[in-house]
Design a protein around this nucleic acid. Structure first.
Length: 944
DNA sequence: GAGCACTGC
């Protein structure tokens, strides 16, 4: 019983330590944690001691933790055990201490040998990179520091711990010496760098590297060049075309010029008008009119000149000095200041790349690619050589890469192989204000590393609003401000709140169209449905206006829109016409449309939120934040002064909107985050230094799930299974499914299913006018009521059989783009299978495949109720089969089902459902289900 | 008989 309690405490990280928190909030959180502990303990009591595959490390640390978290234990038995443990701990400490003193007295020669051996094994471990034998990051760092301290100890011979004339104890003295030494080293190196006036530019590497590498570079470069020859969208490569287009924008600007001014006196009177009040002007800064030229090929000299016109240029030396003087720097710069392209170049020119790479993270793939392409052009080198980028499915870097752009998730993955980012001298986290999940985790990790690696420079760039917060988080790091280049934007609010924002938005569009001078309009909506409705109404209303009014070109844009149609928004507006772009949040950050002069902002967006208690995600319409509203407004001031019409009152803006959008980490399922952190050796998650910690309940839920999946043992440590799971960039349940497929010898099928599941639920395309056809096509894959998982497998395999035919996709109402992505994911998973030593085996046995799925998704089981609904087994909750499922209309209704996810829309729906035999639950997850769970009390006889 | 903001590994 006692052991049980200790286990649960350790598993929960430092839940017990929480009482040291601040005020009543901590109390509340502790109480919550305690109820979870109780629940957890119950679960653990039903456990057997079978999966003891622990990667032993930090044992003493754990003991300390267990001791502290168990304070206040009641029984005599517990106290005795506690006593024993304390003795053990003290024994450990004694041993360690004597070992340390022994080291000090041993002859130097012997010690050198030992150190050499240690160094070699360090190097081995570091370079070995063998996933399963990876050394934990913390252990590695500790060892490294220890070694350094020992070296310092050698130097102290007179036993006088004087540092700058102050007498210190040994520990303090060593620490200071350690820090000072590294500081001196860094200073010397950078001084050396400063004194060198010339930097050797490596030659082209044409002879080096494999053929593939070479081919890849040229393809990447070609892509970049081709992108500027816009308009040629290859229907066979939608995704690529889309990305090409995005890259093209790095050098191209589309602007509508010289449009005819619409005469001020017009005879149209719309039924309703909205009164706007101009309330404020968002100031423009540095409004120099030198937009990037549209010329494609430019001499290096011309590019060099262009670089000098960027707003950041006058701050170059000041910035470099700040970087030199401070380890961590917060940089505030508006879009257009050139920070993303210039800072890494400045750092390179200042010699920082001589002792490691300059890494720069971006939240989006396209941004990483296009910026890298731009910078390589500016530096006059081949993309992929000195300047490269690294995104999922595409690593365009080489050994010679000095400046590396990458997605933030990619850097996170790099942590797994390189626990202290040894190959980097500077890490720049760009667009930090967006607070993506990966960025938030990176913050914690880089902050930690910076404490050990004093030679590592850290740059965090953010928008103005929360710079202070970043500074506070990074130990009061100095803030460096760079002005952006933006035109002023007039902000207008409505006089009174609008009841129907959709209607109000349409009225405003017409109002602007009829009364304001030329310039395109951008309207923000929440989703596809709204956009389609708005499009219809607008078309209807403009139809009757005849030729008295200029043409209104309506362009919808949302992520699920087929790419050919998306390209339409980038076409220049014909003379005399006006373009109105109806967009989702995609236009807020992900893509930039030039020529926009008016923005209409209804103030809403769809936001995902997660309920950890029942494990359900929901997508709800919610008011945007002030930061978001300003971002939207700024979209109108890119090519000239703009106007933003907000469909809410100034009062609402100031008093009702939040300052910032809730960071993603606080509203998402954390299972995969927790697995990643655990595999980085971070065991104490509740005390991990998050900038904004996620809800305690969500963390506990994630731990609970990972424990059930066998990824964590009872002490909350990563097991071998967990270590293998962490290799896959997927949700842990999908990863578990893959790991389990080894046992059922169907890994080939399972990775196809995992790939299909991971790309989401928009594989089937369903145009309104062809609904019946689309439905029939979809149902073809469901013959035999095999369930949605197997149906997805059928879709993938059929596509493969047609040699990945685009035509086949059109015929079957399937989105080619998504299928291509699934193929990429599948290829990646196949590669990773080798890494975790799972053979690719194919099995025709459907039951085996379903069992493998069950191994990952057993917590997601539901049983039929008398009334035809389903109820989830473990955390009782009434749910329904989603109508898009192949099992939605099957008769007889399956009694037991397994679902991929729960989603709250109009009802609580299960998406992607497969029939299940209850005996599998007992067979596969005996630790999770007991007989009474699958024993039927609902009136149906259970078939076991 | 419903519906799917947006990213990322």
């Amino acid at each position: 019983m006692l052991a049980m309690k200790q286990r649960s405490c350790a598993l929960l990280g430092a839940a017990g330590d929480e009482d040291n928190g601040v005020g009543g909030d901590a109390d509340h959180r502790t109480r919550k944690a305690n109820t979870h502990k109780k629940r957890f303990r119950k679960k653990i009591e039903s456990e057997e001691d079978e999966d003891g595959e622990v990667i032993a490390r930090g044992a003493a640390e754990r003991q300390v933790k267990r001791r502290t978290s168990d304070e206040g234990s009641e029984s005599e038995e517990e106290r005795l055990c506690d006593q024993r443990e304390r003795e053990q701990l003290e024994q450990n400490i004694r041993e360690r201490d004597t070992a340390a003193t022994r080291k000090l007295t041993e002859p130097k020669l012997l010690r050198r040998e030992k150190e050499e051996a240690m160094r070699r094994s360090d190097a081995l471990e570091k370079n070995g990179l063998e996933a399963l034998r990876r050394v934990s990051r913390q252990e590695y760092l500790k060892k490294r520091e220890q070694k350094k301290l020992e070296e310092l100890r050698d130097d102290i011979e007179d036993e006088q711990y004087l540092f700058d004339g102050v007498k210190l104890n040994e520990a303090e003295y060593l620490e200071l010496r350690y820090k000072k030494e590294i500081y001196e080293l860094v200073k010397k190196r950078s001084e050396d760098a400063d004194n060198t006036s010339e930097y050797r530019m490596p030659e082209a590497y044409d002879q080096e590297g494999g053929v593939n590498q070479e081919k890849r570079f040229s393809v990447a470069l070609q892509r970049y060049r081709d992108a500027t020859a816009a308009g040629k969208m290859n229907p066979l490569a939608e995704q690529e075309a889309w990305e090409e287009h995005q890259i093209g924008k790095a050098t191209l600007t589309f602007a509508s010029k010289n449009k005819k001014q619409i005469s001020g006196d017009h005879q149209f009177v719309f039924e309703d008008q909205i009164d706007f009040i101009k309330a404020s002007v968002m100031d423009g800064e540095n409004t120099i009119d030198d937009e990037e030229s549209t010329e494609r090929e430019k001499s290096t000299a011309a590019l060099e000149e262009e670089r000098k016109t960027l707003p950041i240029y006058p701050y170059r030396d000041e910035l470099l000095k700040a970087v030199h003087d401070h380890q961590i720097l917060i940089i505030v710069g508006e879009t257009g200041s050139g920070k993303t392209t210039q800072i890494p170049q400045y750092l390179h020119e200042a010699g920082y790349t001589m002792r490691g790479k300059v890494g720069c993270t971006q939240p989006r793939r396209v941004a990483a690619m296009s910026v890298a392409a731009r910078v390589s052009q500016e530096m006059g080198v081949k993309l992929g050589h000195e300047v490269g980028y690294s995104i999922r499915f595409e690593d365009c870097t080489s050994e010679k890469t000095l400046v590396k752009y990458m997605t933030d998730g990619m850097l996170l993955r790099e942590f797994l192989g390189d626990p202290e980012l040894a190959s980097y001298s500077v890490v720049m986290v760009d667009e930090a204000h967006e607070r993506t999940l990966s960025t938030d985790i990176l913050f914690g990790l880089v902050k930690d590393i910076a404490r050990f690696r004093l030679d590592l420079k850290l740059l965090i760039t953010s928008a103005t609003l929360d710079a202070e917060k970043f500074s506070d988080y990074f130990d009061s790091a100095p803030i460096f401000k760079i002005p952006g280049r933006r035109y002023p934007v007039d902000i207008h609010y409505t006089k009174a709140p609008e009841a129907d924002y959709l209607d109000a938005a349409i009225v405003s569009v017409l109002q602007i169209h009829a009364t304001k001078p030329c310039g395109d309009i951008l309207v923000f909506f929440t989703g596809q449905e709204e956009i389609e409705t708005a499009e219809e109404i607008l078309k209807h209303r403009t139809r009757g206006l005849g030729t008295k009014i200029a043409d209104l070109i309506i362009c919808p844009i949302y992520a699920n829109l087929p790419t050919e149609l998306q390209a339409k928004i980038f076409e220049p507006t014909p003379e005399g016409a006006r373009k109105v772009v109806l967009a989702t949040n995609i236009a807020e950050t992900s893509l930039t449309i030039d020529g926009i002069k008016y923005v209409i902002d209804p103030g809403f967006c769809k936001m995902k939120s997660y309920n950890p208690r029942i494990g359900m995600e929901s997508l709800l319409v919610a008011p945007i934040s002030k930061a978001s509203a300003n971002q939207r407004a700024g979209r109108s001031g890119r090519t000239g002064p703009g106007k933003c019409f907000r469909l809410y009152t100034a009062y609402s803006y100031h008093n009702e909107l939040e300052d910032n959008t809730l960071p993603e980490i606080q509203r998402t399922n954390l299972a995969s985050v927790v697995l990643t952190l655990k595999s980085l050796g971070i065991n104490d998650l509740l005390n991990f230094d998050f900038m904004d910690g996620p809800p305690c309940e969500a963390l506990l839920k994630a731990l609970e799930l990972l424990f059930a999946l066998g990824a964590l043992n009872k002490l909350g440590e990563l097991t071998k299974v967990g270590r293998r799971m962490a290799e896959f960039p997927l949700d842990p349940m999908l990863s578990k499914m893959i790991v389990a497929s080894e046992k059922y010898e169907c890994s080939d099928e399972i990775i196809s299913i995992a790939a299909m599941l991971s790309i989401g639920n928009s594989i089937f395309y369903c145009p309104k006018e062809k609904r019946v056809h689309a439905y029939n096509a979809r149902m073809n894959f469901h013959t035999g009521n095999v369930g949605d998982h197997i149906a997805l497998l059928k879709v993938y395999n059929s596509w493969k059989e047609t040699n990945y035919s685009t035509q086949w996709c059109y015929e079957n109402y399937i989105q080619v783009r998504k299928m291509k992505r699934a193929r990429d994911v599948r290829d990646q998973l196949e590669g990773l299978l080798k890494r975790v030593e799972i053979e690719v085996t194919s099995s025709p046995n459907v039951e085996a495949i379903k069992k493998a799925i069950t191994s990952g998704f057993f917590p997601h089981s539901a049983r039929l109720q008398k009334n035809g609904c389903y109820r989830t087994v473990k955390h009782p909750q009434i749910v329904h089969i989603h109508p898009s499922s192949g099992l939605a209309q099957v008769i007889p209704t399956p009694r037991w089902v397994l679902y991929h996810e729960l989603a709250l829309t109009t009802k609580e729906y299960m998406r992607q459902v497969t029939e299940l035999k209850p005996k599998w639950l007992l067979e596969i997850a005996p630790h999770y289900y007991q007989l009474k769970d699958v024993d039927d009390r609902s009136g149906f006889p259970t078939i076991l």
